[in-house]
Design a protein around this nucleic acid. Structure first.
Lengths: 149, 149
DNA sequence: TGTACTTACGGCCATCGTAATAATC
DNA sequence: GATTATTACGATGGCCGTAAGTACA
C-alpha cells in the first residue's frame, strides 16, 4: 500500500502545505477551506500509510516520510504543469528558462552536476546552452539534461 | 485549460492503453471494464482539451497530443510508483537496478549521455556505479543521474 | 482568547459495473 | 457474428463548504 491511488490535487495541496508551513495558508493560496486541506492531507497520509506532517501549535513540519513524498510530489506536479503548457502550445515562460555559458575547465563535471541537481529539484526548468563551446562538452551537457527539443 | 486536474488513475490508464493498443486489453490488464477505460480516456481528453487517441477499427493509436501527454504521464506514474516503493522501505527490485562499469576514456561523455537518455525513457531505473573507478568520473556520473541514496 | 488543526453533517459530482448501441471487418 | 469503442442507467464513494469541536500558548 502506498500513495499510488492518491489524487493529483492531493499532491498539489501537499506541496503547497510543505511550502507554506500551515494548512491555513495553503488553503488560502489554493482557494480551499482549512477543513478541505486537512482532509486532503489526511487522505494522502492514509493512502501513503505514514504520517507526513508533524502537527505543531504554530503549523506543521514535514516528517521524514513527508520529505520523501514531497520530493516525488514536486516532480509529479511540475511534470503535469509542464505537459499542460506544452499542450497549450506555449513556449516556456522566461522565468523557467535558464541560459548558461561556462569555461571548458569548469564545465567538465561541475556543470553536469549542477544541472542534475537542478533537475531533481525543479524538473520544469529548461536549460539552453550557449553556442560556440567545445562540441564534446555541449553534447555531454545535452545528454545530462535536455527538456525541450 | 489543460490536464492539470486529471486523475492519477487516468494517467495510469492512458499509459496502459498506449502500451497495449486497445482499450479492451488495457482494461483487462488493470482490472477495469471496457466502458470504465473508455470514460477515463474521454475525461482525460476533455481535461486536456485535445484528442489523444485516433480510434481505429482494430484499436487506437496515439495522436501527436497523445504522444506528448504519454511522455509526461509515464514520468508521473513512474515517480509515484518509485515514491511508493521508497515509502515501503523496499530496495529497488533487481530488474530495475542497473550496475555499470566502464573505461575512463569512454565514460567521459558517453556514459552520462546514455544515462540521461535512459532516465528520460525509464525514470524508475536506479543506476549503481562500480567502486574503484576514477573519483572525478564517479562524481560526475553521480551528478548526472542518481536515484537512490 | 487567538490561532492552529480536526471532525460531523448534508449535498454535489465523479466513477464504477451492467447492459444496450454503433461501427467495422 | 466477432471485435472494437461509446453511451445510458442506477448505485457507491469521494470531496466540498459550513459549522462545531479540540488543543495549545
Amino acid at each position: 500500500m502506498a500513495f499510488t491511488d492518491a489524487s493529483l490535487i492531493a499532491l498539489r495541496v501537499f506541496r503547497e502545505v510543505a511550502e507554506r508551513g500551515t494548512l491555513t495558508a495553503a488553503a488560502a493560496a489554493l482557494g480551499y477551506t482549512q477543513s478541505a486541506v486537512s482532509r486532503q492531507i489526511a487522505a494522502l497520509e492514509r493512502a501513503a500509510g505514514a504520517v507526513l506532517l508533524e502537527r505543531r501549535h504554530d503549523g506543521v513540519r514535514l516528517t521524514a516520510a513527508g520529505r520523501l513524498v514531497l520530493r516525488r510530489a514536486a516532480i509529479v506536479v511540475d511534470q503535469v504543469d509542464l505537459g499542460a503548457r506544452e499542450l497549450a502550445g506555449l513556449p516556456e515562460e522566461d522565468e523557467s528558462t535558464l541560459r548558461l555559458g561556462w569555461f571548458a575547465t569548469a564545465g567538465a563535471w561541475l556543470v553536469p552536476h549542477a544541472l542534475a541537481s537542478l533537475g531533481r529539484t525543479h524538473p520544469s526548468i529548461t536549460v539552453v546552452t550557449r553556442e560556440g563551446s567545445t562540441p564534446a562538452l555541449v553534447r555531454a551537457l545535452r545528454a545530462a539534461r535536455w527538456t525541450s527539443h
